[in-house]
Computed example of a mutant assay.
Amino acid sequence: MDATATAPRQAGNAQASFAGTLTDKLKEQFDAGLLSGQDLRADFTIEQPLERYTETDHAVWRKLYERQASMLRGRVCNEFLQGLSTLGMDKERVPSFAQLNETLMRATGWQVVAVPGLVPDAVFFEHLANRRFPASWWMRKPEQLDYLQEPDCFHDVFGHVPLLINPVFANYMEAYGKGGLKAASLGALDMLARLYWYTVEFGLIRTPEGLRIYGAGILSSQGESVYSLDSASPNRIGFDVRRIMRTRYRIDTFQKTYFVIDSFDQLFDATRPDFAPLYDELRAQPTLGAGDVAAADLVLNRGNREGWADSDDV
């Protein structure tokens, strides 16, 4: 099981009980004295504590970067590779967010802001709506290379940030943040979270060269980078926003279904309409299991279901 392929993601988890509670990672950082009242700002950001990265942290970054970068060519979309090249992301050490932001801001007006871990939904959406991507500052431990419960710096920075160089995808992420603020007021976060999960985290895209990866949950996972494209087990289904918003997903295994876009323009165009009527429409329809194939689906590959866990979908 691979790192962050199974990690609960920010927009994929209900966090109604977040207020007044802390994740284990937040508590660990408070206990260590990192997050005093003046360090943790009202928007849950902190200064990236570059001085706190150890040689072990840098070695873990280097190992993860090396193994992902070596296998992604021919699997990942060209837009990701272009973004990675443009950013000039450090391969040897955990990168400075401030240095990344110099390039990112010039390209699309986005910036990376350091956070101690998962943040409340409203805070997360507010950041995205203002072109700020909240990234965990801390690195996983050496024994966590292949399994991690919470997204760390490698997942957030290597997996997410390169595509923010792409103008269309950058616009999609901003639109998603604005949509999230509205969805929260309409009680529709569960439906919008599915859209994030199946696009930003676990999305595939059709290209002239074949299917390619763009979702960060796959990009930062060695095993799922292979499984998502090569395995006969999962379904691969054409993108449809209504279908996705009705579909549950997996947080404890590789995905049973991947949704495939034709272009980032298609993805951005899907966020243009007012989702309020759509939420009302979908509330009257049953949800679908993570591995279900519906009659109206554009099925690119019907999975053979081999190895599927029988635990519950989210």
Rank of each mutant, 00 (worst) to 15 (best):
A5S: 14
A5G: 15
A5D: 15
T6P: 04
A11M: 05
S17D: 11
K25H: 08
K27M: 00
K27L: 00
E28Q: 07
Q29M: 14
G33R: 00
G33I: 00
G37I: 03
T45S: 12
T45Q: 11
R62A: 10
Q68A: 05
A69S: 13
E79F: 11
F80D: 05
G83A: 01
S85E: 14
E102C: 03
L104K: 13
T108Q: 08
W110Q: 09
V112P: 03
A114W: 07
V115G: 07
L118A: 13
V123P: 04
A129N: 08
W137D: 01
K141I: 10
Y147D: 08
L148V: 11
Q149M: 09
C153E: 01
D156P: 01
D156R: 15
V157E: 06
F158C: 09
L163W: 06
L164I: 13
N171L: 11
M173I: 13
K182R: 14
K182G: 00
A184Q: 14
L189E: 15
L189Q: 10
D190M: 07
A193P: 10
A193L: 06
T199K: 07
T207D: 02
Y214H: 04
G215Q: 07
G217C: 10
S221P: 10
V226G: 05
S228W: 13
S231A: 14
I244H: 05
T247C: 14
Y249R: 01
I251M: 11
Q255G: 13
T257I: 00
T257E: 02
Q266K: 02
Q266D: 05
R272T: 12
P273E: 13
D274K: 11
A276T: 12
L282C: 05
L282M: 05
A284W: 06
A290R: 05
A294N: 04
N301R: 09
D312M: 15
